[in-house]
Design a protein around this nucleic acid. Structure first.
Length: 855
RNA sequence: GCCUCUGUGGUGGAAUUGGUAGACACGCCGGAUUCAAAAUCCGGUGCUUUACGGCGUGCCAGUUCGAGUCUGGCCAGAGGUACCA
């Protein structure tokens, strides 16, 4: 029996693709282009199934568009800076650089064994000085354009990783890597002015219609745009004023207090000679950030004794509190409290016995009886108890208040964002050094571009706690570029998210002396299809969008957005296993029995089978891609990953599924061998006559071309594969007679199936292609044309319903007129029987589909 | 709490966007082949009923000749987010 030897075949074709530079993108910028990119990997040491799935999906797209005639860019690189390298160095007494490059070498080999159509000539790692020097250059450009600044601020300090984290990198009050609660510390840090682009980052999301809705929503929420007004109040007993921010100026007549943050200048000033307030403020600060008990945290306030005047009610004085729920770094750090229509304000007012006056009444409610209990009313309604606002809608009342306050010079309409600037300083070694010099006389001095790269020193020690750059005996000592006096380098390095914020642009011209060639970037960008995990929905994707806008501002490129199309793939999951002691077991250690029970291979002990969850080392439910590729081949792994589960959903890895995929590759190979004997030889002229079955097979071929193409374009690889299975069965069961038409149709089907499986299982496709005498390589062969005239059906199956219930189906010619269809339906034996003695009230005929008889 | 998504056989999932629910695959059952097994091939497989039939897309209503698909309400699960005024 013919058997397909995947191992031999796969390495053979990988070598041939390589030698022929099949996947090297062309620099001819007049060609139509398609840029496919998967999120590049962190070189942790070994690839995992999640990588295989991610890259297999991208590869289908890349190979498909190449077949469709596009100049395809499908590159690969390494997100190579970061803490695991430092931790490994510490643990093994090695060096992060060695560890990283060794991992890259190993993982490159693993990726190549998957048979990805990648342009390896463009490979780079972000820890190459070649790469990060360009990053330093851009930092200096950004600095010049005022997109970077330094300030002392309260930052998130990760006590395990010993570094600062950006707001986005704190999840549930814990570090995104370490998972431990972060602390608040005052530090001087570098920041990118991402908030300068808040408006664009927000509004342009609407145009990204090839992004998942979910990701766009998450970014919108993160950016948190709100429209409101700046409202100024006068203190009663001096000339000073205080600014607040509100989105509900319409509720001004319901105001019963004014609350400021513990860090508000007014609060700080008062606290200087008020011990009690000082203590209260400290309590507020300690609450912030770390504990998730914020949820239950009681609303606490401290009456400052100060009063402000109500802007519209003559003589009304309102107390000013320091409150623990007001944040200094949002809006003005001060708010007016309207308890009836804001839950926090209500909780606060109830605690301190402040008045609660409803000023918005729901339609249909009587304002005399409408009362607020323990829940604030935040929905629509009409304004009441509000003097000149009475009877207005919320929207109109807002306008009116903004207008009156503006006239008085006491406020204006403003827009606020939740988004904060991006803190980028990290107190780590294995990252890009920040190209800045601190000079005693000149202050902060940017490194000269001619001195770039500011390279990391290789001889560092990880024995001491803290940042090795800071401990290094000589590295930080330099001279000031301005005055040539002795000076010290900045020892912080960039947040590694910067490295991944522009790598997609570097791929367009990875050997350029500039960050990238403008012409190349303008040609290739934006990325047409980006593929990666949804866990980057905010961090990486928002930073990259910012970077593109910043790079545009410093005139490095022209595009607005980095990623035109985004696809977020699901995770790879596996069942979990535990022994009787509760220890996790690897799938390798398990034996599966026919009866459906599981035992430990070594001991015969019974195994407890748990839920299928994301593959992770800690749960030991991982399957190593290398083992799978060695046993079954890369095509089998790819085919399994692409079939069944929709790409955006989680995939459950099962042994049965892999074996099913392997059986298919063998079966296809066997069928082709078998059918090739009776198929026409290659290059035969299309005959004039075709039998009915030959026409059917040809219809199948051409419909498959069209539907597989559409499903690939729509990211429905599972549906492509279902169609290919059907097509395979049709070929397999085709019994050709000796006619030229049958032989031709069979030849055509064999060629078509080879071409349309190629994006998914490229090695087997090449093997079959060479077997059937195909020209050149499948990898460079054009996608076949689907001929519409061959796809047309002549017969259709029409469903006959009585009162919406299916009673019969009838085969009939396509496109018969309605009367004829109706006649056929009524003449049907089953229908006649079912209608006996009934009066027909109405007949609905939908051509080529359905007849519904209403009785 | 709020926002988003998901809910279809034993399992993964299809369903031309309102028109034959369960394509395709896994699993299972039966048969062929084999000394036997593996592999392969053929057939069956939503539930229920002896049958005609009845019931079926998380639950309850509604719109419609016709609803997995649309509307309203509810339930469950997943993800995001959290004092943002």
């Amino acid at each position: 029996m013919t058997r397909y030897n995947a191992a031999a075949s796969e390495s053979k074709w990988q070598k041939i693709w390589d030698e022929n530079n099949v996947f090297v993108a062309s620099d001819d910028f007049s060609l139509p282009k398609y840029y496919v990119l998967e999120m590049f990997p962190y070189p942790s040491g070994r690839i995992h199934m999640g990588h295989v799935r991610n890259y297999a999906q991208g590869d289908v797209v890349a190979r498909y568009y190449k077949a469709k005639g596009y100049n395809v860019l499908h590159p690969m690189g390494w997100d190579a800076f970061g803490m695991p390298a430092e931790n490994a160095a510490r643990a093994n007494n090695g060096h992060p650089e060695d560890w990283t490059y060794e991992n890259i070498d190993h993982m490159r080999g693993q990726l190549k064994s998957i048979g990805l159509g990648i342009d390896w000539t463009r490979e780079f790692a972000t820890c190459d000085p070649e790469y990060y020097s360009k990053e330093q250059e851009m930092f200096l450009d950004f600095l010049e354009q005022d997109l970077v600044y330094r300030k002392e601020s309260l930052v998130n300090w990760d006590p395990v990783d010993n570094t600062v984290l950006a707001n986005e990198q704190v999840i549930d009050g814990c570090g995104w890597r370490s998972g431990v609660p972060v602390e608040r510390r005052m530090l001087t840090q570098w920041f990118f002015r991402i908030t300068d682009f808040a408006e664009e980052l927000n509004s342009e999301l609407d145009a990204l219609d090839r992004w998942p809705e979910k990701v766009r929503t998450m970014q919108k929420n993160w950016i948190g745009r709100s429209e409101g007004m700046k409202m100024i109040f006068n203190f009663c007993h001096n000339d000073e004023k205080i600014e607040t921010y509100t989105t509900r100026p319409d509720t001004i007549f319901g105001m019963s207090f004014l609350a400021i943050s513990a860090d508000h200048p007014t609060a700080l000033k008062l606290a200087q000679n008020n011990q009690e307030l000082q203590e209260f403020s400290n309590k507020c600060r300690s609450l912030g950030g770390t504990e998730e008990e914020l949820e239950k945290a009681e609303k606490l306030g401290f009456d400052t004794g100060l009063k402000v005047a109500h802007p519209f009610i003559e003589g009304l004085e309102i107390s000013v509190y320091v409150a623990n729920f007001v944040l200094m770094d949002y809006g003005a750090g001060a708010v007016f409290g309207c308890p009836a229509h804001d839950q926090r304000d209500l909780d606060f007012a109830r605690k301190y016995g402040l008045p609660v006056l409803p000023v918005v009444i729901p339609d249909g409610e009587d304002s005399a009886c409408f009362e607020i209990g323990s829940k604030a009313y935040t929905d629509a309604g009409k304004i009441q108890n509000s003097d000149f606002l009475n009877g207005l809608t919320i929207a109109k009342a807002k306008k009116e208040v903004i207008c009156r306050m503006s006239q008085k010079g006491m406020g204006e309409k403003t827009v606020n964002y939740r988004l904060r600037d991006w803190g980028i300083s990290r107190q780590r070694y294995w990252g890009t050094p920040i190209p800045i010099i601190h000079c005693k006389s000149c202050g902060i001095v940017p490194a000269a571009k001619s001195d770039l790269p500011v390279e990391l020193p290789h001889d560092v020690s990880f024995e001491k706690e803290g940042n090795p750059l800071d401990h290094h005996p000589t590295w930080k000592h330099t001279v000031c570029p301005k005055c040539a006096a002795a000076a010290v380098r900045e020892t912080d390095t960039f947040d590694t998210f910067i490295d991944s914020s522009w790598y997609y642009a570097r791929f367009t011209s990875p050997h350029s002396d500039l960050p990238f060639d403008r012409e190349a970037a303008d040609y290739w960008l934006p990325v047409d299809q980006y593929v990666g995990g949804v866990e980057h929905a905010i961090l990486h994707l928002l930073y990259s969008r910012f970077f593109t806008k910043a790079m545009k501002k410093v005139d490095l490129l022209t595009v607005q957005e980095p990623f035109e199309g985004l696809f977020t793939q699901g995770m790879v999951c596996h069942e979990t296993y535990k022994d009787s002691l509760g220890n996790w077991l690897n799938p390798d250690e398990i034996e599966k029995h026919a009866a459906g029970d599981f035992t430990v291979r070594a001991t015969g002990e019974k195994v407890h089978v748990g839920a299928s969850i994301k593959m992770s080392k800690s749960k030991k439910n991982v399957v190593d891609p290398t083992g799978i590729i060695d046993t079954y081949g890369a095509d089998t792994a790819r085919w399994f990953m692409l079939s069944d589960s929709p790409p955006e959903r989680d995939l459950e890895w099962t042994e049965e599924g892999v074996e099913g995929a392997w059986r298919y590759t063998q079966r296809l190979y066997r069928i082709i061998h078998e059918k090739l004997e009776i198929a026409a030889p290659k290059g035969v002229v299309e005959p004039k006559e075709f039998s009915k079955q030959a026409q059917d097979l040809r219809r199948f071929s051409h419909m498959s071309i069209a539907s597989v193409a559409k499903d690939i374009e729509d990211f429905h690889f599972n549906n492509s594969i279902a169609q290919i299975y059907k097509f395979t069965s049709a070929i397999s069961s085709f019994k050709a007679d000796s006619s030229a038409g049958d032989a031709y149709a069979l030849r055509e089907a064999i060629e078509v199936i080879t071409l349309i499986i190629a994006p998914m299982i490229p090695h087997l496709a090449e093997e079959i292609w060479s077997l059937i005498g195909g020209e050149g390589l499948v990898a460079v062969a054009p996608w076949p044309d689907a001929r519409p005239e061959l796809m047309e059906e002549t017969m259709v199956t029409v469903a006959i319903q009585i009162k919406g219930k299916l009673r019969a189906t009838i085969e009939m010619e396509k496109d018969l007129d309605k009367e004829e269809v109706q006649r056929l339906a009524l003449a049907n034996e089953k229908i006649e029987h079912a209608l006996k003695g009934q009066t027909i009230r109405k007949i609905i005929v939908i051509p080529n589909r359905i007849v519904n008889i209403v009785i």
